[in-house]
Design a protein around this nucleic acid. Sequence first.
DNA 1: AAGTAAACGAGACGGTACGTCCTGTCTTTAG
DNA 2: CTAAAGACAGGACGTACCGTCTCGTTTACTT
Lengths: 195, 195, 195, 195
Amino acid sequence: MSTAGETPATGRPRSETARQAVLHAVDNMLVEQGYAAMTMKGIAERAGVGKQTVYRWWSSKAEILHEAATLDASHELASPAAADSPSDLAAYAETLVTFLTTSHAGLAYRALVGEAQHDPKVAELISASDLVKPSARAVIQRAVERGDLPASTDMEDAIAELVGPILYLVLRNAPARSRGHWRRYAQRFLDGRRS
Amino acid sequence: MSTAGETPATGRPRSETARQAVLHAVDNMLVEQGYAAMTMKGIAERAGVGKQTVYRWWSSKAEILHEAATLDASHELASPAAADSPSDLAAYAETLVTFLTTSHAGLAYRALVGEAQHDPKVAELISASDLVKPSARAVIQRAVERGDLPASTDMEDAIAELVGPILYLVLRNAPARSRGHWRRYAQRFLDGRRS
Amino acid sequence: MSTAGETPATGRPRSETARQAVLHAVDNMLVEQGYAAMTMKGIAERAGVGKQTVYRWWSSKAEILHEAATLDASHELASPAAADSPSDLAAYAETLVTFLTTSHAGLAYRALVGEAQHDPKVAELISASDLVKPSARAVIQRAVERGDLPASTDMEDAIAELVGPILYLVLRNAPARSRGHWRRYAQRFLDGRRS
Amino acid sequence: MSTAGETPATGRPRSETARQAVLHAVDNMLVEQGYAAMTMKGIAERAGVGKQTVYRWWSSKAEILHEAATLDASHELASPAAADSPSDLAAYAETLVTFLTTSHAGLAYRALVGEAQHDPKVAELISASDLVKPSARAVIQRAVERGDLPASTDMEDAIAELVGPILYLVLRNAPARSRGHWRRYAQRFLDGRRS
DNA sequence: AAGTAAACGAGACGGTACGTCCTGTCTTTAG
DNA sequence: CTAAAGACAGGACGTACCGTCTCGTTTACTT
């Protein structure tokens, strides 16, 4: 990871230019070539940066991708509160699908979830700082506060049941669903959890 | 893929011994070393087989893994019909979790789902012959026939909503849930789809 | 080293084409670029060969160079016996100078002698199979047999005293000496060892 | 090279401490690790000096080594005039062998002679300021003045014939020779050059 | 005393070669 | 014609050095 906690007292400071170049390179290469075709060597060349500079700040392409995606994700997943809980949840579902299927950060997220199945380090990375969870937690929290979900709702389970089916479809490249579909999806989610 | 259409008229026949050796090697290596550390060369050596022999019958380690997993999966995911739908669904959820977290084939399935995010060929492979879907379809079908789910139930959506949350938890290495949890999970699933 | 002692019973045999391509590449690159600028990567590319193939048969550029030079050296250093010992020794001195200053193999020999000062492995290599020594030994032996040098002559010392000054001049890029110079040089060598 | 021509009018002056630290570091590292293992970075760290400081005053490790060796060489190669020319020459030969095989500066000299075969800049360096030549010239000059060598003796050739065989043996790590050997060696040198 | 300017230690920078590993193909002998 | 064995061309891996370039700091000489 590139976030340096303490500032080193001495030596040439890290080049922010190089950092940005790497993050942009990774972002673009993911879309153009896909995760598997990306290499540390290729990233360095694309960014116009030495390989050592990349390794100095990130230990794998997954880590770079995670940082690049995190920067955009919170902004892209922001779902403003709607009038009522069904609308709120349905809007969030649509936002999430759009994020996962069209956004650069969303593609990165899917690649990272995939990679996490092969590499425990990546699994730890996304579990320590999941891009999607916070937004899902927020929308469920709103429903609880409105009284549309019981106060006893287990947050982890609720997130899994809200996000899981969406991720399942997206990871399998299922065809897009209609707006009405997500409206009914939100309703089922609420109905199943009515006390 | 290993399915040979017509039998070649002449020459030395394909060695079934070699095929079995490869499938067993892949199975064991996945558990011992993980997906990423497996290589075609390593598989061949472990199986006591030439590299060319592996390439002759499968085009990637994903394909070998898929075949190895498919053999076991249907048997391991068989969930006998229980007395009522909630019990049936809860039992299936538990079986699926056990499969995905402890079985060799289940680990292979997770590795393949991960790989599918990087490689379209693998995505096609698992979508053409998903190990889990048939079992989920069967248990949902039983609920429809019992009248506990409406006849109009969309099967693809229902599978996604039943399996999605489970896969979401498992892919993130979430801690095991209790039997009661899955009982309530099944109930929420049915309640959301009532009326 | 590339000399395989025992023949392996199985597998694809070594490609003689690749071996020749590497040896030629090294030969040409030494002249064009110099020893320091030659790299294993560059040799492989120039030879149209994989890096692994190079490492499979030689462990360093010095070893390749040694093999390439050895092939040519004995032929190029062959000095036919002259009428008398002074002429014989003078002719050999001239041949040796020409070899060391103009021949590809001679340039390689100088590079190897240089490298041997930094790398004990190279030192061992050239001491185990020196390109120059055999030819010097032969010409001194002839002088002994003619009775122009005492039978008690220590061969190692005589070689050092015959070849050393020549090598000293060549390694320092001293200007070329005349034919008469080498004639007098041979005479001094014989005179110093008379009686 | 470190000899600064004109003194800059202003700014912090060069640190003599740093210069000495670098020269000592190089001296020790050569003995401990060998020429090939020495790096500019390693030298700087060993000397407790910044890399830039090293590059400011020397352009390569060969140059540092040359300066370090030059400081000691003239002192170590000083060979006091003996009673007669054979003794004088024999003593010098022994001194030279000892220098080349045991002294730090002698090891440095051998490393530089080796490097000169790969790098023309180093070749120029040692030919412009050879550590050994002056001492050899002095001892030969004494023999001429004593009348034991003809006045017409070509100095360059004589140096080559006196030093060449010694260097040849040393560069090949030949076993040490006895005192009697060098006595006879000196005699042969004189006999060969008697008019 | 304040200002100027170069040298200082430190270490990141863009590059490039290292030697190893793996890929998918090819070439041998054995069955 | 398949099998095991293993060499082939190619290319990415992560590491190490190269020589250059900033940093903040230090140290002498100039006003």
